[in-house]
Design a protein around this nucleic acid. Sequence first.
DNA 1: CCTTTATCTTGACGATGTCAGGATGGATGC
DNA 2: GCATCCATCCTGACATCGTCAAGATAAAGG
Lengths: 192, 192
Amino acid sequence: MTDEKPYHHGDLRSALLAAAEAELDARGIEAFSLRAVAKRAGVSHAAPAHHFSDANGLLTALAAEGYRRLLAYQGRRQASAAAEPAAQLVASGLGYIDFAMECPALFRLVFGSVRPDHGARDLQAAASMAYTHLTDLVFAAGGRTVADESAVWALAHGLADLLSAGRLKGVASMEPAMRDAVLRDVLARSLP
Amino acid sequence: MTDEKPYHHGDLRSALLAAAEAELDARGIEAFSLRAVAKRAGVSHAAPAHHFSDANGLLTALAAEGYRRLLAYQGRRQASAAAEPAAQLVASGLGYIDFAMECPALFRLVFGSVRPDHGARDLQAAASMAYTHLTDLVFAAGGRTVADESAVWALAHGLADLLSAGRLKGVASMEPAMRDAVLRDVLARSLP
DNA sequence: CCTTTATCTTGACGATGTCAGGATGGATGC
DNA sequence: GCATCCATCCTGACATCGTCAAGATAAAGG
């Protein structure tokens, strides 16, 4: 009510990132429109160019945020799990799945889109933090081979991807407690 | 040289499907352009409308072809594998991965895009054939629970998705024989 | 042979991403 | 206090996109 529309937004960069995520949630990555993001943030269609090189530049920054949020979801599950390495590994897998289910748009942006520049510095940094987190957990749980690492990641990722796409109706239709139990059972199979 | 450009194409529908797949291979689903497909097939930009309702209609038909090709890749691996159910299950997983590696554009269209109408009759039929093939194999190998089925699918799907996206460099950089051995080892973990 | 119908083309519309050029106003130097 | 600079934002334009309408072409069928 005080400031209707100041010429300078103040923190347009953050507002654009939030608007872009809302836009992704509403219309999906394949219908993503930079002009719609700008409209959502209340600025003109060319304003984003002053904060991001490209539409893909905006998506790159958002994908980095996606990796950080993935780690947050994993940490949340691990915090309420037993300290044994195997339990931590399973918990991080549940966090991976939580992220995919609760932020499906970000999940698909990070793992299913080539629009973010996956070679960009900040995105690569965020990605390697997530990757290091995985390899550390695998090592702590006794995994030593490429097969171990691949199995752990692929199983969690496959469950997350199929669930967020609605292709595992048998699991998705369960009540939360039962669903977690099944997922724990499955995730525990990744290490021999 | 004989027929330069007859007004009627003859089999434009098939030509458009082939051109669309080539376009997907070249530019990816996120840069897919119906006009580029038409140009590739040598027809005007509005010609596809007479054979497919939409751009998404074309992608729907192509996705159905994707499911059929997935089954073909699985069958190829199973044909050259032992008859025991467990070996057949692992072989079909390798075929799943073959499909993702050799037809990454189709793989992402089928499993990572919402542009195909996944409720369309022919696409749903093709999808359920692939799904039935999976459940039959799991049952034959002794799997009885939702967890068994989910584990088998998720592990194969996760490997396929991560490999086709270039995120499992440790596995992707191996020579074929070694790579298959590792993948067999991993896939065998899906059943308890 | 004439009509019908399927097939393809041309032209148009609104929407999109990006670029060029102009407007605004906070920040800096004096 | 004031003038200047420059980051920030807007307007307008362009090529390209998907889709629709209307006309052109040729194959099919009476």
